[in-house]
């Protein structure tokens, strides 16, 4: 029941627009790039889906992933701060643990929605390319659905660490822009550390990039950076749960 109210809170909010715009933009830019290089794609006479997917997931992970995840998490959690609603929420007959779990589930749902829409636009753009340029072969080949979902799932996991960090910061820092600023700093450091992958694996902001640039395709179910991101998520979620239920007073 509480989860339904969390969904209602994002109605008329910029969060949904941000998610739709960001997920629409990356496949669109990849599509435009394919149109620009249409002759090369047609000349290769090969299955265009793997290349189309590789470019799209790279664009998504670099340009959309960390920043949009940080922004949506911060904006969603900021709803309570902005309208001074924490104190009201905590005076309703609810266990604080229930409030925490529902907030976290909603943050995870927003992350998942980002992927659902991205994949939807990706397939749609592929089909449209196939219709507009039949010689490219989009309609003559089947996309590797399993492989696409597998890699998407791995990057989803690789982003969990970032989500946990900013989820915690979001109820502790009232000013959303400070939280986003911390995220941007993290992303900048990740870009600087990118060439030093060995050390960078322990820096959560780089985990998504590592999945698509270095660990692609995966040899195991999860790469080292994804397992590390999952551990960061579980550890920080546990800490923030106790912080919220024992110490947070709105």
């Amino acid at each position: 029941m509480l989860f339904r109210t969390e969904i209602l809170k994002i109605k008329h909010n910029f969060i949904l627009w941000l998610i739709v715009t960001a997920t629409f933009l990356v496949p669109l830019l990849t599509t435009l790039d394919f149109i620009d290089h249409a002759k090369d794609v047609i000349a290769s006479h090969s299955d265009p889906w793997p290349l189309f997917w590789k470019e799209a997931i790279k664009g998504f992970t670099v340009f959309v992933g960390p920043l949009v995840i940080i922004m949506t998490t911060c904006m969603y959690m900021n709803i309570e701060h902005k309208y001074n609603a924490w104190k009201y929420l905590l005076t309703l007959p609810l266990q604080k643990s229930t409030v925490y779990v529902n907030k976290l589930l909603m943050a995870l749902l927003l992350l998942s929605l980002l992927y659902v829409l991205f994949l939807l636009f990706f397939f749609l753009d592929g089909i449209l390319l196939g219709l507009a340029f039949p010689q490219m072969g989009f309609l003559h080949h089947q996309p590797d659905i399993g492989g696409i979902f597998y890699l998407a799932g791995r990057t989803w996991t690789a982003f969990l660490g970032i989500l946990a960090i900013h989820f915690w910061l979001s109820f502790r820092i009232k000013n959303m822009f400070i939280n986003i600023g911390i995220g941007l700093t993290g992303i900048c450091i990740a870009v600087l550390l990118f060439r030093k992958m060995e050390q960078a694996v322990y820096f959560p902001y780089i985990d998504g990039l590592l999945t698509v640039f270095y660990q692609y395709p995966g040899q195991h179910l999860f790469a080292k950076n994804e397992i590390y991101s999952l551990c960061v998520f579980l550890f920080l979620t546990l800490l923030s749960y106790f912080d919220f239920t024992k110490r947070f007073r709105g």
Binding site: L8, K11, N13, Y83, N84, A85, W86, K87, Y88
Partner: peptide, 11 residues
């Protein structure tokens, strides 16, 4: 009702 009412003004 504590101080100013806690209302989601976008709703």
């Amino acid at each position: 009702l504590i101080e100013q009412p806690s209302l989601y003004e976008h709703l």
